[in-house]
Design a protein around this nucleic acid. Structure first.
Lengths: 110, 110
DNA sequence: CCATTTAATCGTTTTATTGCGATAAAATTA
DNA sequence: TAATTTTATCGCAATAAAACGATTAAATGG
């Protein structure tokens, strides 16, 4: 159906999957990496940096903004995007716990 | 188009997005969490644990196996699944670098 | 060999995602 | 005000993903 049955999963599981989905496209990974590297960035810069059309970049930015990972402030005719550090750290904490499950003691099986 | 233009991105960006996509569904998050908790697990156990049909679980297991995050060994009529620790750590290293970008010194902008 | 158990695969339906051309909106500049 | 710049939105086409019923495959037990 293309529709995940979110209601049968825990909030934590859904939250992890939502953040992971944001990183599930190389364009969004590239956008975030660029924002970290550059500190601040206009949408037009990203269009040049990444080789996708302007509406496509705008759409990816919208998704990242919806999740709170980035924020954009209008400056004249352009919009300045940057990482939302507080929300990034919150996301990172959640993902780090998930990724760090291998640190709990256990015996490998098969 | 529903088709990511992977060729315009770096190998690292594509790799991050591929792993992230694996965690982009709560069922796969739940499967991995359960495998970590239980050590070893049969497909049928996951069908009971998570509330999805057997073909659906089987499909999710196939994706996780394809990425190398889990491995399955046949035991009689059933298949025993568990985390592939080596590959998990490798994936974790890649994701940790990506998530840890906020640790590099920088000045917040907008 | 036949029934049973367990998991994988096939085929289909439904919804989501990607990408972009065309257009609109908003601010700036001439 | 008109032209320009920059970004957002709309609408569409193409592909991917999710879910599952039906079926197949593989091993075991009687």
């Amino acid at each position: 159906m293309g529709l995940a049955k979110t209601e049968i999963f825990t909030d934590e599981q859904n939250q992890i999957s939502v953040f992971a989905k944001a990183f599930g496209h190389p364009a969004r990974v590239a956008i975030l990496q660029h924002l970290f590297k550059i500190d601040t960035c206009f949408c037009g810069d990203l269009v040049k940096e990444i080789g996708l059309a302007q509406p496509t970049i705008s759409q990816h930015l919208k998704e990242l903004k919806y999740l709170g990972l980035i924020k954009g402030t209008v400056e004249g005719t352009s919009v300045c995007y940057c990482i939302d550090m507080d929300n990034w750290k919150e996301m990172k904490d959640i993902m780090t716990v998930f990724l760090g499950q291998d640190l709990l003691p256990k015996n490998e099986c098969c």
